[in-house]
Write a protein that binds this DNA or RNA. Structure first.
Length: 683
DNA sequence: CGTGGCCGGCTTTTT
DNA sequence: GCCGGCCACG
């Protein structure tokens, strides 16, 4: 490792030894480099790898970090001994180690968002209110519960903002939600952090164990931490204060899901004696792009304040394309992308198209397809969210954790075995009356000897079948996971059902492939994680989005939301739809009833501005900003005004293109060109 | 239990 | 204006 490869502030951050340090890392300023060099530096100073922890937000970031440290050290074995993981995987680790202190059973389940929504929906259904489950937006309730949990507001202490209906239902739902999770032996993502904090606060033995574990802690993307995560970190470093956090207050774009920007804004007040290092030299973008980014972000007031600079040249001007309507905008982007590839030799993967909201992607996809531009979309439906995958996982879950009511409800009549809603409701009511869990009630009702006036013999047999399938699965799970899962698929004849139910053969095959994909993932995890049990494997799976397997590189143009673009960079970036009500979004300008009200009721567009800043700073060489003058919203064509953020960019950095004019001049030749390109392609 | 028609809604999303 | 979710009907 060569410290001379670093610029002065980078070196200062890397060689900083004890005490708290905030590294304000501007976009493209070599943030990951600082963290990895710092880890290597600590090791070189003789710090044992077991004493170092680095916390990230995504699995991808964690893997990348470990990868780069291993490369830097040229030593995989040492890299393996480092603790590098997401907040949630670290929380899970601690909860697992302290499972007994918490009173969790071995097979406890992690509930993801769709599970959480299921729990809330179920509680709403049983609420005395008329039509409660239809009247309310379940997600809005869940958001409030999550914000409360992360703010350590107890279920019985939920504060209702005057006149906010959603606060009122949340106050009713939240305590029941938390009770339900515990009854189901389940934790949600928030619990993975908050339960750890609670434990560290209430159990001195546990606290001491974890406080002496790490002597150096690092946190990446610190601007995204919420209060609970801050508390967790605080506890871990309470003995020594050796904490280095790296982040950028100007890239804080997740406050809507609980991130608290004051964590980074007030770091030096929260951690006594903290030092501050600013990384302002940018190694990514041209001067033009940085000037635009700086000009925009300078309009925000609540910030540490830094100015990105680069020793690169001015480069190309930013192209500001004004289209008469959205169709023209999308068409032009698709053709320009194609032109850059064909004429300028840009690889497809050197280009990205970014937008504020996913709906904008639809038209772009269409145009890219007609122009035969290969593209891949970031985000979209996650592999583990697919129905057939979740169904199989639900069987595994109920086999491991008999209290996982949600999993049981999911598969109680899947594949269809004649257990209707009435039967389920009856059984649930019975479970409630007997203070038993649903699985035990189902088992009793399905027993051959059961003589139950409420349940028809046919239904009894169906329940008996289900119990048989699950119990056989549980027995098989004592052996090999894959053999057991294959046995399950046979027992329930899943593939027959998928073939039968799918609208087409290709759709059926796709679903079968998805299940096979799950088996592939299970196999890999089994082989990699060795002796760990299935319960553990499933928990790790829930913390794992499938982005790793989804699009492994590939020569394709990237389509992504501005949120999804954070942390990425491309030689060419298109930011589309830079109009008022898209960026800043209308929802920010006029909040809805379901939106969480800000403490001071003020409309704050600074996060939207940061989103714009994030987009601009993704570009290395060439930035395109496009907008349309007319856009149909809710069926009506509406005149559009340029985004206020676009107006904040100095004119001399922009080169305006009037696409209405270009269209008038070029339509015939363009059509001729397309005609010929189609011809040559068919040959 | 599956499907077609109708009604409502229409940011961002990782773990 | 379109899509997705839900209910009613077959």
């Amino acid at each position: 490792m060569d410290l001379a490869k670093l610029n002065p502030p980078q070196r200062e951050a890397v060689t900083h030894f004890g005490g708290p340090l905030l590294v304000l890392a501007g976009a493209g300023s070599g943030k990951t480099r600082v963290i990895t060099f710092r880890i290597a530096h600590l090791l070189a100073q003789g710090v044992p790898p077991e004493a170092i922890a680095a916390v990230t937000f995504t699995n991808k970031a964690a893997e990348e970090m470990r990868e780069r440290v291993a490369f830097l050290l040229q030593d995989r074995r040492t890299a393996k001994k480092l603790t590098i993981g997401t907040f949630h995987s670290m929380g899970l680790w601690i909860l697992k180690e302290e499972r007994k202190a918490l009173g969790f059973p071995r097979g406890f389940t992690i509930y993801d968002q769709s599970d959480q929504l299921g729990v809330v929906r179920e509680i709403l259904r049983h609420l005395a209110k008329e039509d409660a489950d239809r009247r309310y937006d379940v997600k809005a309730i869940l958001t409030r519960i999550s914000l409360a949990k992360n703010g350590f507001v107890a279920p019985d202490a939920y504060k209702i903002h005057e006149g906010d209906d959603y606060d009122e239902v949340t106050a009713e739902i939240y305590p029941r939600y938390q009770e339900a999770l515990r009854a189901f032996a389940a934790v949600d993502f928030d619990d993975l952090i908050t339960e750890v904090v609670r434990l560290l606060e209430t159990n001195p033995a546990v606290r001491d164990r974890w406080r002496s574990r790490f002597r150096f802690v690092m946190v990446d993307e610190y601007q995204d931490t919420n209060r609970a995560q801050l508390m967790m970190v605080k506890h871990l470093v309470a003995d020594h204060g050796n904490l280095v956090v790296v982040g950028d207050d100007d890239q804080s774009i997740y406050s809507w899901r609980g991130a608290d920007p004051t964590n980074i804004l007030r770091f030096t007040e929260m951690f006594e004696g903290a030092r501050l290092v600013k990384l302002e030299q940018n190694y990514r973008s041209t001067k033009t792009i940085l000037d635009a980014a700086n000009a925009v972000i300078n309009n925000n007031t609540q910030r540490h304040g830094k100015t990105l600079w680069s020793d690169k040249g001015a480069g190309a001007p930013i192209i500001h394309a004004v289209a008469p309507d959205v169709e023209t905008e999308a068409k032009w982007v698709a053709r320009e992308v194609r032109r850059l590839h064909q004429d300028d030799g840009r690889p497809w993967s050197a280009m990205a198209v970014m937008y504020r909201s996913n709906i904008q992607a639809k038209l772009l996809e269409e145009e890219l397809r007609t122009n035969e531009v290969p593209y891949t979309m970031y985000g979209g439906q996650q592999f583990f969210e697919r129905k057939e995958v979740k169904d199989v996982i639900a069987y595994l879950r109920i086999a491991l954790n008999g209290r996982d009511e949600l999993a049981l409800r999911r598969i109680i009549n899947y594949p269809a075995r004649g257990v209707g809603a009435t039967t389920v409701e009856r059984l649930v009511a019975r479970a409630q009356a007997q203070h038993a869990n649903l699985w035990d009630v189902v088992r009793a009702a399905g027993a051959e000897a059961a003589d139950d006036p409420e349940i028809r013999p046919q239904t009894r047999r169906a329940l008996g079948d289900l119990v048989g399938v699950v119990e056989r699965l549980r027995e098989r799970l004592a052996g090999d996971v894959i053999v057991a899962t294959r046995g399950l698929l046979d027992d329930i004849a899943l593939y027959d059902d998928l073939r039968h139910a799918a609208p087409s053969m290709t759709a059926a095959q796709r679903r079968i492939d998805n299940v096979e994909g799950l088996i592939g993932t299970l196999t890999r995890h089994r082989d990699k994680r060795g002796g760990e049990g299935l319960a553990d494997l499933l928990r790790h799976l829930s913390l794992q989005s499938d982005s790793e397997e989804a699009d492994a590189g590939g020569e394709k143009v990237i389509l992504t939301t501005l949120h999804g673009s954070k942390g990425l960079e491309f030689p060419v970036v298109f930011m589309v739809g830079l109009e008022e009500e898209l960026l800043p979004h209308a929802r920010t300008l006029q909040p809805q009833a379901t939106d969480v009200i800000d403490a001071d009721h003020a409309i704050d567009i600074s996060e939207e501005r940061r989103l714009c800043y994030v987009g601009i700073t993704r570009a290395q060489q060439q930035l395109y900003i496009t907008r349309a003058c007319v856009r149909t919203s809710r069926g009506r064509p509406m005149p559009r005004t340029p985004s206020r953020f676009l107006l904040e960019i100095p004119d001399e950095l922009l080169e305006v293109r009037d696409l209405a004019e270009e269209a008038r001049e070029k339509v015939p030749s363009d059509e001729v060109r397309q005609f010929f390109s189609k011809l040559s392609f068919d040959d």
